[in-house]
Design a protein around this nucleic acid. Structure first.
Lengths: 129, 129
DNA sequence: TCACCATTTCATCATTTCATAAAATAGCAA
DNA sequence: TTGCTATTTTATGAAATGATGAAATGGTGA
């Protein structure tokens, strides 16, 4: 058993910390929020659907077989991070990917996920690498 | 009050669904997990630290002033998604970004977050765009 | 105006995630 | 072996997130 945590006595030679490449915590948080919005299967599925082009909420609901309020919440989160934009036409509301950057981000991630056979947490790489 | 949910009677002309660009759910989930691992400020901070190069756990602990077990858990999650690799040298364990792709991903996201003033959920864009 | 359809918001519950203490494991040296 | 330092694992409580029913809002047309 170890006295546990903190009182850190690590005394090996660390390369004298050459000042962190400073990134204001704001940006870090913003980036994290963006990734978090993307980090959900169902939401990613919606974004993927939108790769086909502008789509109205009802279409998304029928395409995914989810509840209206469920889809609406997902869209709200995606919109709050600037991933999708919306446009109202009469009684319908249409959503679309916010810009080409989002499209690239999406396509890259999906391509990467398709090729890279990322291990599950229960199948961690044995030891170092 | 509305009978609410499902029984969807949306009858406007939808462009006849031309078969979704099929992406197996597996890939979607994998991509989502990757994004989720990135979608956390503290974890992103570690990755950012690692942009400076291979770093041992103790260094990360002192640099971030977090508990050892906390850092270890974060590293585990990052590793489980293949974002970092580790190498043992004697009694120390060194972590590094898994590959250049991760570096790019990171730099892009941070740059994007720095410029884009992504609104908080409480500051949603007024109406359509 | 009323009635109806499309969508969003609100409140709640279930699930997941996060940080952490405690205990376990691993390497090294006496 | 014992003892020490470095790191990981396990268990757990607290906080965040996700899905959803119910109610509210907004648009359209009679």
């Amino acid at each position: 058993m170890m006295n546990n945590e903190q009182p850190l006595t690590c005394s090996h030679t660390h390369s004298a910390s050459p000042v962190l490449p400073v990134v204001d915590p704001e940006s870090l948080e913003r980036a994290a929020r963006l990734f978090r919005a993307l980090g959900d299967g169902p939401r990613l599925r919606i974004l993927h659907l939108l790769l086909r082009g502008e789509t109205c909420v009802s279409e998304i609901v029928t395409a995914t077989a989810d509840k209206f309020s469920t889809i609406s919440q997902r869209l709200r989160i995606l919109r709050s991070e600037g991933l999708v934009r919306r446009r109202r036409d009469g009684s319908h509301v249409y959503y679309a990917l916010a810009d080409d950057h989002v499209k690239d981000l999406l396509r890259n991630a999906l391509a990467h996920a398709r090729e890279l056979d990322s291990p599950t947490i229960s199948q961690l790489p044995s030891e170092d690498d």
